[in-house]
Amino acid sequence: MAEKPKVATTSMAGCFGCHMSILDIDERILKLIDLVDFDKSPIDDIKEFTGRCAVGLLEGGCCNDENVKTLKDFREHCDILIAVGDCATMGGIPALRNNMSVKECLDEAYSTDNRKGPAVHNPDNIIPNDPELPLLLDKVYPVQHVVKIDYFLPGCPAPADTIWQSLVALLTDEPVELPYELIKYD
């Protein structure tokens, strides 16, 4: 039997909602694993690429250096990259910080000087700075601003059926069928 094409997925500056949407294809996931093997992905918890992949599914935009590293890694290892969901294609909710400076964002989240609400208990006024922590970018970038992207599936999240139809079309080399119901978002 010929080797199955591989699919990799990642969630960067997203909420994992698009991954939930991938799982939301329900029992068709059994058909999917007939068609493909999963490589690097939170679904199977493979951390590093094991080889060349046919398709990479990207959730979320880039908010820190680790995201950029992951994204470039995906571009290097995948023939086709698909931006899945609004955060990947447009920055989405995380990009709401884009008209504030990084300093303002960190202060808002951690500093007790500025923070009046009860949610922060940070008596020493420490902004986390462990070397393990990724560094924030000046703003949140949609994925196509960082590397070339081949396809975009908008939606918050991109609907399960849209993801399914697109993947199957790609993997079977058939034209994709996306009826109106799958691409309307109101």
Partner: peptide
């Protein structure tokens, strides 16, 4: 496959200044 307009150095500058360390990536 990188986008030539994206400048990772410029994008990291504010956070590196605040954290006082360079990006490991």
């Amino acid at each position: 496959g990188s986008q030539p307009e994206f400048d990772i150095r410029a994008a990291l500058r504010p956070a590196e200044a605040i954290a006082g360390r360079a990006s490991s990536h």
